[in-house]
Simulated assay, not measured.
Amino acid sequence: MNSSIGELTELIQPPSVRRDKDWASAEHALGIRLPADYKELIETYGGSNWDDYLYVLEPGCPNDNYDLIEWEDQQAEALEGLWEFEKKPAELEDEGVRVIPWATTDNGECLYWLIRPGRDPESWTVMVNEARGERWEHFPHTCTRFLASALTGDLRSNILSSRFPLPVHEFRQLHVM
Score class of each variant (00 low, 15 high):
I69V: 15
D73C: 13
Y45W: 08
R145V: 09
L68H: 00
E86C: 10
I12C: 04
P117V: 09
H169T: 07
I69H: 02
N107C: 13
G60W: 05
P15A: 08
T105V: 11
A26F: 00
E130Y: 00
N107I: 13
L41V: 09
L114P: 10
S3K: 07
P89Y: 02
A103R: 00
W83Y: 12
E84G: 12
L8F: 03
H175C: 11
A36D: 13
G108E: 02
I42K: 00
G118Q: 11
V99H: 10
E10I: 01
F171T: 11
G81E: 11
S3Q: 12
L111K: 01
G47Y: 03
T104F: 02
L41Y: 02
E10A: 12
V176R: 15
E40I: 05
P165K: 08
Q75R: 14
N2E: 12
C110V: 15
L147W: 01
D22M: 04
W113E: 04
L57W: 03
E72G: 10
L34R: 04
Y38K: 00
I100C: 06
V168K: 09
T125G: 13
C143M: 04
F85N: 11
F139E: 01
P14Y: 06
A29Y: 07
A76H: 10
T142W: 05
V56H: 05
D20S: 14
V97M: 08
P59N: 12
F146C: 01
S48P: 07
L92K: 04
E40L: 06
D51N: 15
S157A: 01
P35H: 06
E27T: 06
E93G: 07
D22L: 12
F85V: 14
D106E: 13
E77K: 11
G96T: 10
E130D: 08
C61E: 10
G31L: 04
E122P: 03
F171G: 09
R116A: 12
P167K: 03
M177V: 15
G96E: 08
E170W: 02
S4R: 02
V99N: 12
L11M: 12
K88G: 04
M177K: 15
F164V: 00
P15N: 05
E109H: 08
E170H: 09
T125L: 07
F171A: 07
V97S: 11
H141Y: 14
D64I: 10
V97F: 12
G133L: 05
G31C: 04
R172L: 13
